[in-house]
Structures are given as structure tokens and as C-alpha cells.
Design a protein around this nucleic acid. Structure first.
Lengths: 243, 243
DNA sequence: GTGGTTCAATGGTCCAACCAATTTCTGCAC
DNA sequence: GTGCAGAAATTGGTTGGACCATTGAACCAC
């Protein structure tokens, strides 16, 4: 017997505030970077306490929708619409070798699928954007004689965006975050990521040729090189317990 | 030049409160369902205002880590540790067809990979557990003449656990949650999920035979049936705008 | 036991003030 | 007029205290 009688909501001030604010943002057509009304004004307009406004904004801040700068104001950080679905993802951190490998397994699954979808769906403008990021990455590689994680990440981001599914970018971003949190420096492996370099171009070629299977295969090869690097690093210095 | 000098934190009361609370939870070994100290006690102990405590708890509530019940108290909803990674996923228009398909694309990538890894790594005890869940699911299917989402989910969970990578279960759980939040009822498709039934057994057979490629293929077939069901449902009643 | 009543505990809201960071304005030196 | 230092206004962050709404336990009549 399911409960077809959900508990009634007698008070939900914060949610009401957020709903009103979302409607305001929509009506004013506010985009990322733009400034929201001040807390005091919101409190007055909505006839609620400033404290309640703050609790509501704290929720949005926690969801990364909004950024508050003391003395300046509150600014939109992402597009927001009333029918948006929010799902907090909290991951128990793996800070050892197994944890790092775990993030790579997720990346292997998601990046290969995203590359394949991208090969199917990418249009002309998306392809141009990806190629631009690829050129930037290759230039940085030549200049600094090594992988640049920033430009590398931007290339992958462009691929994820062109996949037509925003979840890819968000989830893999979480994997990147976990991966780099315990590994800013390439622990002993001097040319970390070096082996992955050529596959960026081959992935792009497959995407441009609208060859999903090829793109998937090349993406898998890329991840395999990273896994090899990680294993080499783990062999160099035993990082069994970094707490 | 990257910023190796992170901005000093002159004021970060809420974060400090959360850090202290995370430490407290760890020290007291509190698990899901257990009760946290009251806001007034926390405020007194931590020497901050009750309002500050509330803002901090609002953050955790937004992340789904905690549940507040007026008149009762604040309770842990999930395991929490100080080195946890929080990343809210937001899906624009998560309630329309495209949003539901987006969650399915993630599942296709992750479930196939998890099934393959499971086929490689599952030991005797894991296999027995998966088969037990499978039997339960099939029994529920016979009894109620239809898919039971609870037993179905438990089967998949068992597979993810046996994959040896806890991230699979965590991420796909988020996808399930997103999927079902706007779709508790099978919108017009009476026998939703029916077509996916036989593939549970075939997936298990491949896993038991330690055949990763086969397991991956069967998992892909299963997701394909769900996608078909979704498309049928979308065709039945145009759910372009469910507000 | 059943069903109300009372009452203390707890989260939810409000108010008024002040603190701290930022932005803007003002006025002076040049 | 320009440039810059300091004052003033703006804005988010914090505090303390008060009261409301809900919950749950203790208690009591029946």
C-alpha cells in the first residue's frame, strides 16, 4: 500500500522565496553574471524577514546557482529556470590508489560514451569550437613541452558540451575534482599525461568524420594511457595512505 | 601564473561550523538516521550565533545530508565524512523527455561498464548475492505480473557493489532519483519496464560466466528497452511541458 | 487501552543592530 | 581636468533576543 496521502505543507517560506526569485529571474531574463536584488530589498518586496531570504539564498549558493560577494552583491552563476531539477551528488572520497583508479573507471565509461554521442550529434559550430580548443592544447603542448591540464580539460569540456547532454560534463567534472584533489603534482611521473597527447587529435578526427565507434575506441585508448601513468606513479612511490 | 596563494579566509564561520560538525559526526560515529545536537546547543558550544548554525545546516540540508524536522530535531540522512566531495547536478528542464533521456544516457554508459567490471571481479559471495536479488525480482515479477522497481533496483545495486567501484552505485543512484522524481507513474505505458525483464537473467548469466563483453552487451540491451518504453510514453501523451 | 490536554523541547521566522568587505562619492593636491 | 586618498554609502555576514508552529512525551480522565 503506497502512501497516496503526502504530508501537507503548512509552511515553506524559503521555497516560496526561491520560487518567487526564480520567477523574477525568468521575467527579467537575467543571465549568468548579472546581479540580483539585494537581500534587504528582497525581504521588503516579498514581505519576509531578511533572515528567511538569506536561508533561501544559502540554498542556491550551495547548489552553485548563485555567488555572494560581501560588500558587492549577489550574482547569478548559472542559468536558472523555475522548472530546473537539482540533484546533489555527494561522493565518498577515495584518496588512495584504488580511489584514483575508481574515478578513472567512471571516466572511461563516460568519456567514451560522450565521444561517441558527440560524433553523432556535433554540428558545424560545435566542431569548430572543439578544434579551436584542440589547437590551443597542442600549442600549449609544444610551448611548454608537456601536457597542460587546463587546456586539456577545456578540450574535453568542449566535447562533452557537444554531446548534447549536460550531465556528462557535470559528472566528469566531479571526477576531475576528486582526481586532482589528492594529486596536484604528478608524483614522480615526470611526463604525466604525455602519452595521452596524440589521442586528442585522433578523437577529434573521428568526431569530425561522424564515426561514433572510432571516437569511442580512441577515447578508451586515451584513458588507458592515463591509467598506465597512474600505475607507474603508484609503483614509484607507494601512496597507500595519504590522509 | 596560477594562484598558488588561495585567498585567506578572514570570515568563514559557516564553513568552520560545518567542519566542526563533520568532525563531531566522525568522532561520535554517527550514522544515517541519528540525531544531531540541537541548533541552540551547537550555537552555544561553537560560540557562534544560532543564525550562523542555521545557515550552515541549511547548506547541508540542500545537499541532502541532513533532514530537519520542526519540533523534533535535525537528523543525519546520509553518511558524512570531512573529506567528502559535494557536487550538485542541475538539469535544465529535467522534467521533459530530453531530461529523462539524458539520465538514461548516463545509465547506459555506467551500467554497461559496471556489468563488465562485475563479470571480471565478482567473487563467489558477490555472485550468490546477485543471484539472490535476481530470484527475489523474478518472484516479484511473477506474483504481481509486472516489474517491481524496488526489487529491480536492488538487483542492479548488487551488481554495482560487485563491480568493486563504489562510485558506480552512488552516481547511478542519483540518476535513478532524477529519473523517478518526475516520473513516479509510467505515463500511459501500462507495462513499463516489462521488456527489460529477461535481460536481468542474461546479464547475470554473463557475469557468472565471467564474460565481460557479454555482460556489457546485455546491459546495453536492457537500457535500450527502457529507452523504447520512454519513447512510447512520450509518444502517447505529449509531455512537452509538465509544470 | 483510548482519546484528549498540558507542557517542554525544537526548528522556523522575525526584528534590530552592528561588523566587514566593497563600491561609490567627495574633495584636495597637482 | 587628473589622480588619488579618505569619507560615506552600500551590501553581505553575524549577533542576540524574541516569538511562533510543530512535535513528542507525560499526564489524566473515561
Amino acid at each position: 500500500m503506497t502512501d497516496l496521502l503526502p504530508p501537507i505543507q503548512t509552511t515553506a517560506r524559503d521555497d516560496a522565496v526561491l520560487k518567487a526569485l526564480a520567477g523574477f529571474v525568468r521575467q527579467e531574463a537575467l543571465g549568468p553574471g548579472e546581479k540580483l536584488p539585494t537581500e534587504r530589498i528582497l525581504a521588503e518586496r516579498l514581505k519576509v524577514s531578511r533572515n528567511t531570504v538569506r536561508e533561501a539564498l544559502t540554498r542556491w549558493e550551495g547548489l552553485g546557482l548563485v555567488e555572494r560577494r560581501q560588500g558587492s552583491g549577489t550574482y547569478l552563476k548559472a542559468a536558472v529556470s523555475p522548472d530546473m531539477l537539482h540533484m546533489p551528488l555527494t561522493l565518498a572520497g577515495g584518496n588512495d590508489f584504488a580511489g584514483l583508479m575508481a574515478t578513472l573507471e567512471i571516466r572511461r565509461a563516460l568519456e567514451s560514451e560522450a565521444a561517441a554521442l558527440c560524433a553523432i550529434r556535433a554540428g558545424k559550430s560545435e566542431l569548430a569550437e572543439i578544434e579551436r580548443k584542440l589547437d590551443l592544447m597542442e600549442e600549449a603542448f609544444q610551448t611548454r613541452a608537456g601536457m597542460s591540464s587546463d587546456e586539456d580539460w577545456e578540450f574535453h569540456q568542449a566535447v562533452f558540451r557537444a554531446s548534447g547532454n549536460p550531465l556528462f560534463e557535470q559528472i566528469i567534472a566531479a571526477m576531475y575534482e576528486m582526481f586532482h584533489r589528492f594529486w596536484e603534482h604528478p608524483l614522480g611521473v615526470r611526463d604525466f599525461g604525455h602519452a595521452s597527447f596524440p589521442y586528442h587529435r585522433t578523437i577529434f578526427d573521428c568526431i569530425a568524420a561522424h564515426d561514433p565507434d572510432g571516437a569511442r575506441a580512441e577515447a578508451l585508448k586515451l584513458i588507458a594511457t592515463v591509467e598506465d601513468d597512474l600505475k607507474r606513479g603508484a609503483a614509484n612511490l607507494k601512496l597507500s595512505d595519504r590522509r
